[in-house]
Write a protein that binds this DNA or RNA. Structure first.
Length: 252
DNA sequence: GTCCGGGGCG
DNA sequence: CGCCCCGGAC
């Protein structure tokens, strides 16, 4: 990791070069998150070593549906058999599905290979590195595209997966089910505002780690959370009820 | 044993 | 919006 972290540079004040007009009160947020990450973040998971868009992509799709511990052996097996985009694109679908057996959500395995074939055919096998190009691939939405580009390409994009949704919904005491479109739009705005241009990859990983290890669905460890003094849910004692559950399911 | 959550898609 | 599948929570 030597040389990975850039030297801290002053924040520019030119609005045109500040895509995320971060408000002053929220400024300490990402710094606290990053400091927590330096001490407590996960940095040695299999897909965090020799990060490429391909390895991050495969891991992100697996992690969409399965926890880290379960994913690890599948990830190793998958990477051994399909070490790059072309080996995945050129494989028989049966074999791809075979290596996915046990993970479930088999459409994701089919989408994974379909996207690999599109990358082979449309991008000469070279992984595209623009957000819109990634979103155009089946199985990759805005959040996964942002994760790939921030984690593997050092680009400035935010993510909003289940973990980040939970952290932000609590921090800002966002009302409503996070699957609701309006609520989701609000959460995306917060995600964009808070994502720093500096150390974006670490911040992205940190937020996922926060949601997975600290800001968990049940029994969040607020006492050791680096931002609990400013977390509205914590301050209001509403960690258990936020984020809100799906009303439709509750009333049925 | 039942229920709920989860990215992206239909 | 619900569905896909499965694991974690209760």
């Amino acid at each position: 990791m030597l040389g990975y972290y850039p030297v801290i540079t002053p924040r520019t004040t030119d609005p045109k070069t500040v895509p995320n007009n971060i408000k002053a009160p929220h400024d300490p947020f990402n710094e606290k998150i990053l400091a927590w990450f330096d001490l407590n973040g996960r940095k040695n998971l299999p897909w965090q070593l020799n990060k490429t868009p391909y390895t991050v992509w495969v891991s992100e799709i697996m992690l969409q549906q399965t926890q880290v511990k379960t994913v690890i052996p599948y990830y190793h097996d998958f990477m051994q058999r399909f070490p790059d985009v072309l080996s995945l694109a050129n494989a028989a679908q049966d074999e791809v599905l075979h290596h996915w057996t046990g993970l479930g959500y088999y459409a994701r395995a089919r989408n994974l290979q379909k996207s690999a074939q599109m990358i082979r055919d449309q991008y000469a096998g070279k992984f595209p590195e623009q957000l819109e190009q990634l979103i155009a691939l089946p199985g990759i939405g805005r959040s996964t595209a942002g994760a790939i580009l921030s984690l593997a390409c050092g680009q400035h994009h935010s993510i909003l997966d289940g973990n980040v949704k939970r952290v932000l919904a609590r921090y800002f005491a966002v009302e409503g089910w996070t699957g609701n479109k309006k609520v989701e739009t609000e959460l995306w705005q917060y995600a964009d505002q808070l994502t720093p241009r500096h150390r974006t990859a670490d911040y992205t990983q940190a937020m996922m780690d926060m949601g997975a290890t600290l800001c968990t669905r049940s029994k969040p460890q607020c006492d050791t959370c680096p931002v609990h003094t400013d977390c509205l849910a914590f301050v209001q004692g509403r960690q258990a009820e936020l984020p809100n559950k799906n009303q439709k399911k509750l009333s049925q």
